[in-house]
Nucleic acid binder design. Sequence first.
DNA 1: CTGTTAGCGCTTTCAG
DNA 2: CTGAAAGCGCTAACAG
Lengths: 320, 320
Amino acid sequence: MVTIRDIAERAAVSVSTASRALNNNPRISRETRLRIQSIATEMGYQPNYNAKTLTNGEANAVGVIFPPGDMSTAANPFFVDLLMGINTQLRLRNAVLSVAIANTTEELTKNVLALISQSLIHHFILLYSKANDPVVELLKSQGVQYVLVGDPTQDNERYVNNNNRLAGAKALEYLNRHFNSRHVLFVESEMEQGFEKQRRLGFESAAQQLGVKRELLKLPDKAMQHLDQAVAQYLDNRRDIDGIMTTDDLIGMMVYQLTRQQLNRQVPLISFNKSQSNILIGDQVRFVELYPQHMGEAAVRVLFSETKQFEMLPFTIEKV
Amino acid sequence: MVTIRDIAERAAVSVSTASRALNNNPRISRETRLRIQSIATEMGYQPNYNAKTLTNGEANAVGVIFPPGDMSTAANPFFVDLLMGINTQLRLRNAVLSVAIANTTEELTKNVLALISQSLIHHFILLYSKANDPVVELLKSQGVQYVLVGDPTQDNERYVNNNNRLAGAKALEYLNRHFNSRHVLFVESEMEQGFEKQRRLGFESAAQQLGVKRELLKLPDKAMQHLDQAVAQYLDNRRDIDGIMTTDDLIGMMVYQLTRQQLNRQVPLISFNKSQSNILIGDQVRFVELYPQHMGEAAVRVLFSETKQFEMLPFTIEKV
DNA sequence: CTGTTAGCGCTTTCAG
DNA sequence: CTGAAAGCGCTAACAG
C-alpha cells in the first residue's frame, strides 16, 4: 500500500506538503502541486479513506436508506436504477455508498444510528417518505444532512421528485390528443402512495379541462382471488372506454390484456414506471418515463449543494 | 462522542485494558471485562470503525456488487430482498454494507477497486455471475474474499444458490400430481440466464420420467410488437396444453391471461420469482418460493465461514 | 509557500 | 492479568 509518506519521500517534500498538494490546497505552488500529483498517480496512490475520516471526523460515504420491510414493495423496480444514478455521482466525488435496510422501522433506525456514530456518515438519501418517521427524527436530531427521494412530508425538507401531478395531466392530454380518447379509465392501487395520488389529481384536473369523461378504478390492496374477472366485469359495464392510464406497468399489463379480450379491441394505454419487462407493448401503448437514474443523480447533487433545496425532474412520454 | 479513553478513565483502567475487555480478549479477567462492558453500554459507547479499520487494516464493511447495467434487469425483483437478508446478517456481526454498482463493467471494476484499496474492504458478495468477468479477476488478484449469489462459473468458487434444476423438476411433478397435467408448456426468455437453463433441464428430465408431453416456448429477447398475439397463436396450435411453467411472474401473468382467453379455460400455472405484485392469482396458480432473503443471509454466512464452500437453499411450492 | 508536530480512536507489541 | 507506548495514514494547527 502506497501512502502519502512514500510520495513525500519520493518528491523530497514533507508529508504535509504532499497532503496539501493532493487535496489541491491553494497554499501549494502550482508547480509542486502538479509534480506531486503526477508522482502520486504514477505510484498508484490510493488515499486511505479510513484515515481521512478519522482525522476529518466525517466520512466520505453516503448512506442510502431503503424503506422498511412493510413498505419496501413500493418503488421496487426503481431501486436499482436509483442506486445506479446515486453511485455514478458519488464516484465522481470519490465517495462511496453505504446502505441501511431492515424489515422493521425499529431495526432500520438502529442501522442508521450505527452508520452515523460508528462510521461517521453525515449524509443520507432517503428512498421513502412517510409522516412521523422515526428515521427522519433521528437524522434531524443527529444533525446530519439528508435528502428525500419522493414527496416531502415536512416543510424545509430537501428532496428530489417528479412532478407527478403534471405527469398525470400530461398523460391524459396525450391520450386525448394522440388517440382522441374521450372516456378514460384511471387505475390505481389501494395503498395510495403519495405519487399515485398526485398523478390522479393531475389526471382529474386535465380531464375536467378537456371535458373528458373519467372513470376511477381502485384495485384492492390484497391479492384477490378473481381480480381479473372483477376487472373484466368492470370493463364490461363501461364498454366505451377509449383510453386507460395505470400507475404501474404490471397493472397496466393486466388491464391491457383484459380490455383487448373483453372489449374486443385495442384500447390506448399509458402507464408509469416502465419496468424491466419488455412485455407490455403495442402501437397504442405509451409510458411515462421518469428517469429514475437521473433522480438518483439529482439526489446527490442536492445533498452536496449548499443552497439547493430540491430538484424537480422532467419526465417524457414514450413509445415502448 | 464517547471514546475508549472515557471508558478507561471511568473504569480506572488503562485504555489497553478497556480495548481488550471490549473485544472479549481472554487475557482480561472475566470480572473486569464484564465491569468494563457494562460501563461501556451505560455510557452508550459506539466504537469508531474508522479507527478500528485503520489499525486492523481491514474494514468491517462488506461490499455488495450489483450486475453491470447491461445485465441488471436479470434478477431485479430479488435485489431488495437479497439486500435485506444480507444486511440482517451483517448487523448481527456489527458490519455494514457498501455497494458497488455501475453501468459498465469497466466502471464497476473501478468501483470495486476503490472499495478495496480506499476503504480496505476485504469481503464481497457478488450478485451476478458470468464467464470471464473482470470483476472476479480483480477480486481474485487482490486476494479478497467473495461469495457469489447464483450459479458458479469456476471451480473452487464459493456461492449460495437454489437448486434450480431440482426446482424445475419438482414444479413439474407438482403440476402432474396436483393438477394431473399431461402436456406442459415451459416458457423461458431468450437471454438464457443460468438459472433458467437449470430449471428447464429439471423440467425436461422430470417430464421424461413422468411421461409428460412437453413444449418449449422461448420469448424473444427484445420487445416485440405483437408478442401477445404471437403467443396466442402459439397456444392456439397447442390447445390441449394443461399445465404451464414460466421462469418469472410477469411472463406468467401474460401467458396465464392469454391461455384463459385463447383456450377458454383455466390452465394450471406455476411460476418462479413471485414478484411484489399481487396480481397473478387464482385457484390453479402456484409459484416456487426461493426465499431471496434467506439467500442473502446465507451469502454472509458462507462469506465469514472458514470452511463452508457453498450453501444450497431450499425452495417451496406455494399457493399465492 | 513549506516543514514540524500533535493527534484523530483504536489495537498491539512489549514490559511488567 | 494489566499498563505504557508506539503507530495505523492522514490532516491541521503552528511556526517559519
